[in-house]
Design a protein around this nucleic acid. Structure first.
Lengths: 236, 236
DNA sequence: TATTATAATTGTACCGGTCTAATTTATCAA
DNA sequence: TTGATAAATTAGACCGGTACAATTATAATA
């Protein structure tokens, strides 16, 4: 692992272990430099990483402070790896409904940037949290990239398999979010009524080289799903 | 404006003007260094900014490429400034329903990190896009920070007033997203039926020094609202 | 032609430095 | 005590460099 990532992890761990609260100050740059025995730019990179993750915020002339939101139990958008409950002690499981190789619809072909004759893996799953239906998911994988899938892989973390097993490097993703009413099929899978609200999320995942490999449609149970995300204004 | 921000803007404009498509390659670092006559680290910072904005992605050993999602008409989450339609040619208006100074509820006090006796500005608005009700909004401003508001200010962009008029520097924000059913009042403001889906977003905006100054609750019309956001996996 | 080894290209990590701008603390004056 | 002023602190901008890793292009080999 790289130095700045290492340092970021250690700092995050430090904050966790010492139960630092929002607004608590971290050591100043110079002492961090001394402590980790690296140059300023390396510390800066580590802190930038943590800032983007929403762990700290930096104030010029003042210091580095802990940023921490109060509410627990929210799913973090932006943590890219499909699913990951913010809270600890969660219990996520999956049931695979369908898994096969097929040809893409036009919609899928467009999102995966492939031709109509290319093969794709189709995966249909229901996701559970603490045994309750959280989401209904349909995923489409470009088979020329994700060359092999089976039921075991698909009921675990596919992303882990993709990076560890296949040696692919996941890059960025585009996500589209809607709210709508549940149709009959979705309502059944989620144990709700037709017409009830749903949160609908479409994601296109890309490798680091920009190739899209996964197009996924997620329909969330509105009763179970609360999301959290952070924004930093210095985008502009 | 800082050099790296300037460069980021120019590059973004360049991509726009030349209608570069997804995957198109930008000049290599060295030629950008020469073109803008700055050091490598400055170019790198500019590109990192653009990468975080989702404008480009960089591939080591290969080059810098345009990243561009296809769908138009989505509201970008993460662009912090309350509202801002992704698409151009939008037409956003507001109607102010209420505006007064009052004491905070416990919920508001907690989110703004103030005592129960502090004063807050309360603003209740309906937001329209192309004349159609897009969202119903309640905002709570810490009056000791946002010292003055009136109907004119509140019907325009408050964020603009806060930064330009009051000279405050907006930093980061925490956002909490839910889906639920509309209650009677919300349904009326949005021209929908009670029980229809709603997208509910709570935001806490902070100054660069970490002070929360704005707690806002937004109820979106599910028919009008589609959101877009991007994620970069190298958070980890 | 296809495959493999080699070299060139290109972005990233990291160093160590100077200067600047925002903030905080200390100092002085009213 | 208050308020203005100066000094010290601290993060950020920017430079120019070396070394490295991933990718791509080229050459060598079968």
């Amino acid at each position: 692992m790289l130095k700045y990532q290492e340092i970021a992890h250690e700092l995050e761990k430090y904050i966790e272990d010492h139960k630092l609260q929002q607004g608590d100050k971290l050591p100043v740059l110079e002492s961090l430099m001394a402590q980790f025995n690296v140059s300023k730019s390396t510390i800066t990179k580590a802190l930038d990483l943590l800032e983007r993750k929403g762990v700290v915020f930096q104030v010029r002339g003042s210091g580095i402070f802990v940023r921490r939101h109060k509410r627990k139990g929210y799913i973090s958008l932006l943590s890219n790896q499909g699913f990951q409950k913010e809270i600890e002690g969660f219990n996520l499981t999956s049931k695979v409904i369908e898994l096969d190789v097929r040809k893409p619809t036009q919609e899928v072909a467009e999102n995966l940037n492939i031709g109509p004759d290319a093969d794709i893996y189709y995966v249909k799953r229901v996701r559970y949290i603490h045994g309750q239906a959280l989401a209904f998911e349909e995923s489409f994988y470009n088979k020329s990239i994700v060359t092999y899938l089976n039921k075991e892989i698909v009921s675990e973390s596919i992303f882990n398999y993709i990076s560890e097993g296949l040696g692919l490097k996941v890059g960025f993703s585009d996500m589209y979010l809607h709210v709508d009413k549940l149709n009959e099929e979705e309502a059944e899978y989620l144990g709700l009524k037709k017409g009830d609200p749903k949160l609908y999320l479409e994601s296109v995942y890309h490798l680091t080289n920009g190739q899209p490999f996964d197009f996924s449609k997620l329909t969330y149970n509105y009763e179970q799903s609360q999301f959290f995300f952070q924004s930093n204004s210095h985008f502009f």
